[in-house]
C-alpha cells in the first residue's frame, strides 16, 4: 500500500464543552497508481481528511503511513520534508506565489529540496511543457487565467516527483469547460505518468471519471 490511514480521528476544541469530532474513526488505503475521487456534502470533513493525507495536519488519534513513513509520529520539520518529497498539492484557489514567475513557482519545491538551480530550472521548464504552459514560463500569476494558473499549480505539484498528487476541488474556481480540461490533465498524468491521485470534487461527472469513488458523510467514509 502506498498510503494507509488507520482509525483516524480528528477533534477540535478538545476538552471543552463544544468539542467537535470532525473525523470519526476513518480508515483508507490507496494503492500506487490509483485515481481516487472523494465526494460528499459540504462540511462533511473532506478537506480535513485531505489535509491529513497531505501531512498538513496531524490526527488526534490513529495511524498514517505514507510510502512506509509513519506520518502520525512526525514533528514539524519532518512533516515539511514529507510534504516536500512525497506530496504534491493542488488547491482550489491555486495558491501560486505572487510576484514570482510560473517557472519560479514550479521550481520552488525543488528549491526547498536543495536541488541545484540549473537542474531546477530545467525540470521546471519540462513540467510547464507537460501541462501545456511552456510558452508562459516567464509570466507572473496575475498575468494568467484561472485555468492557466491551475496548470502551473499542477506542474508545481509534480516538481519533486511526489508519491501522490492531492487536489482539493481543483476545478471549483473554474468554469465547467476549463474544469474539464484540468480534469483531462489529471487523468493524463495518472495514465501516462502512473501518478497516484486523490481528488476532492463536488462534480459527479468528474468523480465518475476516476478509478474509485470514496464518499464521506459526517466525518465517516460511507462507501469505498
Amino acid at each position: 500500500m502506498l498510503l494507509e490511514l488507520k482509525n483516524i480521528v480528528k477533534k477540535y476544541y478538545i476538552g471543552t464543552e463544544n468539542e467537535l469530532e470532525i473525523l470519526k474513526n476513518v480508515s483508507l488505503s490507496v494503492r500506487k497508481g490509483e485515481f481516487v475521487a472523494i465526494v460528499g456534502p459540504s462540511g462533511s470533513g473532506k478537506s480535513t481528511f485531505m489535509n491529513m493525507i497531505g501531512a498538513l495536519d496531524k490526527p488526534t488519534s490513529g495511524e498514517y503511513f505514507l510510502n512506509g513513513n509513519p506520518v502520525h509520529k512526525m514533528d514539524d520539520d519532518e512533516l515539511s520534508e514529507i510534504r516536500n518529497r512525497e506530496i504534491g498539492f493542488v488547491f482550489q484557489n491555486f495558491n501560486l506565489i505572487p510576484r514570482s514567475s510560473a517557472l519560479k513557482n514550479v521550481a520552488l519545491p525543488m528549491l526547498y529540496a536543495g536541488i541545484s538551480k540549473s537542474k531546477r530550472m530545467a525540470r521546471a521548464k519540462d513540467l510547464l511543457g507537460l501541462v501545456g504552459m511552456g510558452e508562459r514560463a516567464g509570466h507572473q500569476p496575475n498575468e494568467l487565467s484561472g485555468g492557466q494558473k491551475q496548470r502551473v499549480a499542477i506542474a508545481r505539484a509534480l516538481a519533486n516527483d511526489p508519491a501522490i498528487l492531492l487536489a482539493d476541488e481543483p476545478t471549483g474556481a473554474l468554469d465547467s469547460k476549463t474544469g474539464d480540461m484540468i480534469m483531462e490533465l489529471f487523468l493524463k498524468i495518472n495514465r501516462e505518468e502512473g501518478k497516484t491521485i486523490v481528488l476532492i470534487t463536488h462534480s459527479e461527472k468528474l468523480a465518475s471519471q476516476s478509478g474509485r469513488v470514496v464518499a464521506v458523510s459526517d466525518g465517516k467514509i460511507t462507501n469505498q
Partner: peptide, 16 residues
C-alpha cells in the same frame, strides 16, 4: 499569511 501557508504546503521548513 496565505503565501506562507502555500510555501509550507510545498515543503518549506521553519528555517526556510
Amino acid at each position: 499569511t496565505r503565501e506562507i501557508g502555500a510555501r509550507k504546503a510545498l515543503g518549506a521548513k521553519r528555517s526556510h
